[in-house]
Each structure stands twice: as C-alpha cells, then as structure tokens.
C-alpha cells in the first residue's frame, strides 16, 4: 500500500512549514520598485516600474495562495490518516501541478 508508513505528524509539520513560507512571502513588499518612477521621472525606467511591481505582486500572491492551499491539503490528509481513513490520495489527486507553473 503506497500510503502506509506516513506519519500524520510529519504531514502537519510540512503544512506548518508551508504556512511559514506563506507568512514570510506576505511581508515581502512586491511594490518595492514603484519609487523608481519618482527617482527617474519621465524616463523609460519609470514607465516600467509599476509594471514590474504589478507583476511581482501577482506572482507573490499566487505563491502565497498555493502555499495556503498546500497547507490545507496537508492538514486534511493528516486528519484523514488520524481518523484511520486512507483517503489521503484524494486530497492531492487532481491537484493541478501546473497551478503555480512558472514560465
């Protein structure tokens, strides 16, 4: 049986790790490039500053969201193992691996 041997405790630890990464990424300021526009008014770089910030904001949000989802899934799997129900497979089956895919 493929799932035999996993400790719910280690699944919860991985979930906590995912939450911690998400928490750290939340405090990263994705709009840190915005002030380039004020530092170099009327420049080509100024035009790109907001676009870079928007891009990073969207990418970091996506990473945080994936990490939150991952933590939930790991906790759900741990709960099932705790309950003696071998349904952990379902929690990750069908999870699109490409949801976070980077270019």
């Amino acid at each position: 049986m493929p799932d035999i041997g996993v400790e719910p405790r280690s699944l919860r630890a991985a979930a906590r790790g995912s939450e911690d990464v998400a928490a750290e990424l939340r405090v990263v300021d994705p709009r840190v490039a915005d002030p380039i526009a004020e530092a170099m008014p009327s420049s080509g770089a100024a035009k790109y500053a907001t676009r870079v910030s928007d891009y990073w904001e969207e990418r970091l949000k996506r990473s945080v969201s994936s990490l939150d989802q991952r933590a939930q899934n790991l906790i759900a799997a741990a709960d099932r193992y705790d309950g003696g129900e071998q349904k952990g497979v379902a929690d990750f089956t069908g999870l699109a691996p490409g949801a976070e895919r980077e270019q």
Binding site: L11, A14, F92
Partner: peptide, 16 residues
C-alpha cells in the same frame, strides 16, 4: 521544513 515527508508515497504524495 515544508517538504513533503519522504516516507509518504503514492499519487497524492507526488502531487504534493
């Protein structure tokens, strides 16, 4: 620390 437990195997584990 967020790594998927090594002893966990199967489709769900791979997806994780």
């Amino acid at each position: 620390a967020a790594a998927t437990p090594q002893e966990w195997e199967g489709e769900a584990a791979e997806a994780a």
